[in-house]
Simulated scan of single mutants.
Amino acid sequence: MTAKPPTPADLALSDAVGRGDADAARAALRAGADRERRDGQGRTPLLLAALADRVAVAEVLVGAGADVNAQDARDDSAWLVTGVTGSVAMMRTLLPGGPDVTLTNRFGGVSVVPASERRHVAYVRAVLAETDIDVDHVNRLGWTALLEAVVLGDGGRAHQDVVAALLAAGADPALPDGDGVTARAHAERRGFEAVADLLRRAESQGGEGPRAGGGGR
């Protein structure tokens, strides 16, 4: 079945998203633009706005009822993309749209997992505080956000703060990966002493970690 060609309003909306022009996006929607129209990769205008961190345009689209959970051919959604970009402003813009925080990306992870690997400290703290996202969600690789921060992290201050934030939110330091290796064992093997110390303390406290932001101090 051939896709219906875009209308002038659809093209205007696409252009507005690309330029980050909220007023033009609003005008395009009033002119009848399809807020859920997908491009060749299955991306909606809202997903494209999230990818480019066009917060003002996203606010217009969410206000118009755009689906924050619509996934593209790669299983990305506007909400899931915030875990990659680390944009707290975009995350908060999407919240009124009712994001499904259990939605997973192509690796089987929820948004806090890639955010932890990419050391988006502010995002990790915000999404854990402002949603009921599962801090111990396990992706297809067998990794939680805590494991991802250690296995794919560099052990530096930002990753220490991510680990601290996850532990403060109740992440279980004893959960192992698919091979039975815990985050602490990974940290010790890689020489991440500050991270390993955070995890040892959390284990000794029965999984209750230090307050976020305390790592490495």
Rank of each mutant, 00 (worst) to 15 (best):
A78Y: 00
T104A: 13
A70V: 00
L94Y: 05
V55L: 14
A73Q: 10
L94Q: 07
G83H: 06
T104G: 10
G97A: 15
P96D: 00
V101Y: 05
G65K: 09
A73N: 10
G83Y: 01
V55E: 09
A66V: 03
S77Q: 00
G83E: 00
G97P: 11
Q71F: 02
D100V: 15
M90W: 01
V81Y: 10
D67C: 03
M90Q: 04
E59R: 15
G65I: 07
P99M: 15
E59K: 15
T85G: 13
G65P: 01
V57F: 11
L94N: 01
G65E: 02
V60P: 02
A89Y: 10
V57C: 09
V62E: 01
G97T: 14
T85R: 08
V62P: 05
G86Y: 11
G65D: 06
L61Q: 11
A78P: 00
T93A: 15
G86P: 05
D75G: 02
D72M: 07
V81H: 03
T102G: 04
A56C: 10
N69G: 08
G97K: 14
A64F: 08
N105L: 12
S87K: 02
A56F: 04
W79H: 03
M90S: 06
D100A: 14
V81R: 09
V81A: 15
A73P: 01
Q71Y: 00
A56G: 06
V60D: 00
V84L: 14
S87W: 11
M90D: 07
D72R: 00
T104I: 10
M90L: 11
G86L: 14
T93M: 06
S77Y: 05
T85D: 00
D67T: 01
G63K: 07
V62A: 07
N69F: 02
G97I: 13
L61P: 01
N69S: 10
V88Q: 02
G86I: 12
V68D: 03
S77N: 08
T102F: 07
V101C: 08
G86V: 14
M90G: 06
T104F: 09
V68P: 12
L94E: 02
L61R: 11
V62F: 13
T82H: 06
E59L: 14
V57W: 08
A58Y: 00
G63F: 14
G86S: 08
V101L: 12
R92P: 01
W79D: 03
V62M: 12
G86Q: 08
A70T: 01
S87N: 07
G65W: 09
M91A: 15
A73F: 09
V55R: 13
W79E: 09
T85A: 14
G63R: 03
G83M: 12
D72S: 07
T82Q: 00
G97Q: 11
V68T: 02
A73C: 08
P96C: 14
L94I: 01
V101G: 12
R92H: 05
T104R: 15
G98R: 06
L80F: 12
A73L: 14
V84T: 12
T102W: 00
A64T: 03
R92D: 09
S87P: 01
A66S: 13
V88H: 00
A89Q: 10
E59P: 09
A64M: 08
V68K: 10
A66M: 12
T104Y: 05
D67N: 12
L95Q: 08
A70K: 04
L95G: 00
G83P: 05
T93L: 13
E59C: 12
D100S: 08
N105Q: 10
L95W: 01
T82P: 04
T82E: 08
V62I: 11
D76S: 15
